[in-house]
Design a protein around this nucleic acid. Sequence first.
DNA 1: TTGGGTGCAAACTATTTGCATTCGA
DNA 2: TCGAATGCAAATAGTTTGCACCCAA
Lengths: 144, 144
Amino acid sequence: MQHFPLDEEQVRSLMRAHHISPTQQRVDIASVLFARPQHLSAEQVLSLVNDGAASVSKATVYNTLGLFARKGLIREVIVDPTKVFYDPTIIPHHHFYNVDSGTLMDIPADVMDLGQLPPLPPNTVAAGVDVIIRVRSAEAAGEK
Amino acid sequence: MQHFPLDEEQVRSLMRAHHISPTQQRVDIASVLFARPQHLSAEQVLSLVNDGAASVSKATVYNTLGLFARKGLIREVIVDPTKVFYDPTIIPHHHFYNVDSGTLMDIPADVMDLGQLPPLPPNTVAAGVDVIIRVRSAEAAGEK
DNA sequence: TTGGGTGCAAACTATTTGCATTCGA
DNA sequence: TCGAATGCAAATAGTTTGCACCCAA
């Protein structure tokens, strides 16, 4: 089971375990992500990182988030065509997405078991399952 | 059950049923979408529409696809941060997404029943459920 | 006539890339 | 020292917007 927050030392060893060399900027970025279970956009990560003492460029934030996702350190959540969210929780789980507020919430996998996957298309292997339950705020739901 | 393709007259009455006034450009766009069950990006719709006799501007294609989705005529499928796919099949179903080829495939709802939804967050109402099974091509899966 | 629909181009935003510089083993 | 990592600015791509024009009711 994952736990939060992770201190800098834990972040470093987690990165090593995923074959990512723990440079200062990368540790700064990962520390923000692993402060708690949450869902942050690249832009949010950028401003949170630079709130502290650190100074990391936009390009490095984007490149680093992409690297983390490719290496399996974090997970990309694609629910909104206008931006990607990054999720430090990598154990399988699903998401509620409030389309009115743009808020993501976790759904633990065990409260919603999918059971068996259907047969995959020929010559393919599974790479991940995303379940997104889109919700609207009760008040906003009436409008169009 | 939906059937494909829809002829122009069927497209017009479907549009009326969804409270969309069937102008020529909108009918042209809808005819492309409802030619068969498929998943098209805005760009693909634009070029398919303008392959024929019709000439529809890019802005109109984007505005119209957004309108169709808002009115429930078609469904937006968000699986790739770089573009939105539009799906003429609105009966509930899920998707395989091949991340290597960028291809979407339908999964009928009945081969993968989710059962009960988990309790929604307070003050929200369900707006839709998306299940995306990401797959990789068998050959490409080895690479990194 | 008048408001919705359309077209064009410019604007916008998230993200990526090229390249020179700097860092760390 | 030498390749990897970083930063900056410019480029890119998908999508949206402002605004003038046009057409059907």
